[in-house]
Structure formats: structure tokens, C-alpha cells
């Protein structure tokens, strides 16, 4: 029966340590890259979206509203699709909302690197049926307030205003 010599054992240990070190270094590099690419992206959007672009004239509000709310968000969870696809779908939705709000120079959130946090927070927010009439756009503002550690009573007051406004039967 073949047994490893002490030299082989040390070599094996060195190999394992080397692989682990490479993984550790790569994880750190990926994290740094992710943060910097997010910051670059935000800087890019803030810098490159100039003030000279023409925009549509404001339009009078009608009873048929186009925005997404908690019912739409909940429908995504019920979709016949993989978890990867559902998450990817939610990421794109939030990306579009954030980008559109930035094009309009009214950014809904300050840090796009927190998308995963927003997805999880929105899942929690809309798990309460009371919140489902609130548009995703405003739900993100509520979550942003919580992220910024704004006093709970202020967040709660804002949420109550939203509930009052959007629980009226205006959405189809």
C-alpha cells in the first residue's frame, strides 16, 4: 500500500493553500471591480446625460396608469421561469426605473450597486398585501429611506401617505 511521504503531504498542503489563495485574491478583485464598475456607471450616467436633451411635455393624468406596482412584482414570482430568469427580470426592471429616473434628472436611488438589496427588500415590502397598490418607483423610495437610516416614524409617515394615495381604485 502506497503512503504519502511527508514531502508529498507538504506539497499537497502547499497546493491547496495556493488554490485557496488564488480564490481569495480573485474574490477581492471581483468585489473591487464590481464596486468600481458601479461607481463608474453612476458617474457615467450623471456626467453623460446632459441637460440639453428634449423631453416630452408633461401630460394630464388619466385613470389608466402605466406604472408597475406590487401586483406586477408578485406576478414575477409566480412566473413559470427559473429563479435565475426571475432575478434577471427584476434586475432589468430596477435598472430601467433607475435609468429613466436619472434621464429625467430625478434619481430614485443614489447607488445602483445595491440592486440585489432592493430586490430582496421589495420582495419583503410586497409580501404585505397592503403595500401592493404602491408603485415600485415609490416602494424603492421607501427602501432608500430605510437604507439611509431615516427615522422609522418618517418612513412610516411617508408609507401612510402612499397608501392613502394609491389605495384609491385608480389602477386597472
Amino acid at each position: 500500500m502506497k503512503t504519502d511521504s511527508p514531502f508529498d503531504k507538504i506539497m499537497n498542503l502547499k497546493m491547496i493553500i495556493s488554490i485557496l489563495s488564488v480564490f481569495l485574491i480573485l474574490t477581492v478583485l471581483i468585489t473591487i471591480k464590481k464596486v468600481s464598475s458601479s461607481q463608474d456607471y453612476m458617474t457615467y450616467l450623471k456626467k453623460e446625460i446632459g441637460p440639453d436633451l428634449p423631453t416630452e411635455e408633461p401630460k394630464t393624468q388619466t385613470s389608466t396608469l402605466p406604472y408597475l406596482n406590487g401586483y406586477d412584482w408578485d406576478d414575477i414570482n409566480k412566473m413559470k421561469a427559473s429563479i435565475f430568469e426571475k432575478t434577471s427580470f427584476k434586475i432589468s426592471i430596477l435598472q430601467i426605473i433607475i435609468e429613466t429616473s436619472m434621464f429625467l434628472k430625478k434619481p430614485v436611488v443614489e447607488d445602483i450597486s445595491k440592486l440585489e438589496i432592493y430586490i430582496s427588500a421589495l420582495d419583503t415590502f410586497y409580501s404585505s398585501p397592503d403595500n401592493r397598490m404602491i408603485p415600485v418607483f415609490f416602494a424603492m423610495k421607501v427602501i432608500e429611506m430605510q437604507q439611509q437610516a431615516i427615522p422609522e416614524e418618517n418612513v412610516s409617515a411617508y408609507r401612510s401617505l402612499l397608501l392613502e394615495k394609491f389605495n384609491k381604485p385608480t389602477k386597472s
Binding site: 416630452e56 401630460k59 402605466p66 408597475l68 406586477d72 426592471i93 430601467i96 429625467l104 430614485v108
Partner: peptide, 17 residues
């Protein structure tokens, strides 16, 4: 849904299409 994400944001920001 993507269209409504964009249109809805514009609408709720006061600059609707």
C-alpha cells in the same frame, strides 16, 4: 413590463410620455 417600468417612472416623476 419593461415599457411600464420606464413609462411609469416618467409618469410618477411628473414627466410622462
Amino acid at each position: 413590463i419593461y415599457i411600464r417600468a420606464s413609462e411609469g417612472t416618467a409618469f410618477l416623476s411628473g414627466t410622462p410620455n
